[in-house]
Simulated assay, not measured.
Amino acid sequence: MKKYVALFLIAVTLLTLAACGSKDALAGTWSADLGDDGVITWTFNGKGKCTMENAYMKQDGTYTIDGDQLTVTLEAWSEPSTYTFSVDGSSLTMKENSGYGISGTFAKK
């Protein structure tokens, strides 16, 4: 019985250490020229904090990831925006789910 408990504890420890070392796929700085909206730059710190910047403003905020859903809350927004996102190498595609927000494909800087 002690063997099984020891193996279980080792497995839990390894899983915990693996989770601590992982970073989210968005970590880094991403930028795109979105035409009328100009150049938009997103910076995600990998720990739930973000910044969105364009020629007119720079806003700090927070974000969470749940599968392919990204929820962003910026300081000037009255409510969070949720995006469906994907990362393919050095490209981040974000599509705002309501259809009204900033959407596009961003290149990693």
Rank of each mutant, 00 (worst) to 15 (best):
T82W: 02
V87H: 05
T13A: 15
D68T: 13
A32I: 00
Y83H: 06
T84S: 11
A76T: 13
G35S: 13
F8C: 00
G28P: 09
Y56S: 11
L92M: 06
T82P: 04
Y56P: 00
S91E: 12
A25E: 14
F85L: 01
S81N: 15
E53C: 13
A6L: 08
L14E: 05
G101R: 06
F8T: 10
L74N: 06
L14D: 03
S103D: 07
T16R: 00
T62F: 13
K23V: 14
G104N: 03
I10N: 03
E53Y: 02
D68P: 10
T51L: 11
A25T: 12
M52S: 09
S86T: 12
A27F: 01
G67L: 03
M52W: 03
A107T: 14
T64P: 10
G61F: 13
V39Q: 07
N54Q: 05
N97I: 12
S90G: 13
S90K: 10
T43W: 06
G46I: 01
T41R: 00
T84W: 00
L92E: 02
M57T: 15
I102Q: 06
D66V: 09
D68N: 15
A76L: 10
S91C: 14
G61H: 04
V12A: 11
Y4P: 00
T29P: 13
V12G: 01
M1K: 05
F106G: 02
L74I: 07
K47T: 14
Y83F: 15
G104Y: 00
L14G: 09
G48F: 08
D68G: 09
G67A: 06
K2W: 06
Y4L: 05
G61N: 08
Y83V: 07
M57D: 15
M52T: 09
V87T: 08
S81G: 12
D60E: 15
G46V: 08
A107F: 02
S98I: 11
T29F: 11
D60W: 04
F44W: 03
C50Q: 09
T29S: 15
S90D: 15
L74A: 10
K2G: 10
K49M: 14
A27G: 13
K95F: 07
G89M: 02
L92Y: 01
G61A: 15
V5E: 01
Y100K: 07
C20M: 13
A25R: 07
Q69R: 12
E96T: 11
T13G: 09
A76V: 10
M1T: 12
T51Y: 05
D36N: 13
S86R: 01
K49W: 06
L70K: 00
A18T: 12
V87K: 03
M1R: 06
D24Y: 04
A19W: 04
V5I: 11
T71H: 05
I10T: 10
L9F: 07
F106H: 01
N45W: 07
N54T: 12
L92K: 00
K2R: 05
F85E: 02
G48M: 08
G48S: 14
Q69T: 14
M57I: 10
M52N: 07
V5Y: 01
G61L: 07
A25G: 12
S91H: 08
A55Q: 13
K108C: 07
G35R: 03
T13H: 05
G99V: 05
S98C: 14
K58G: 13
A11S: 12
I102D: 04
K3M: 11
K3S: 09
I40G: 13
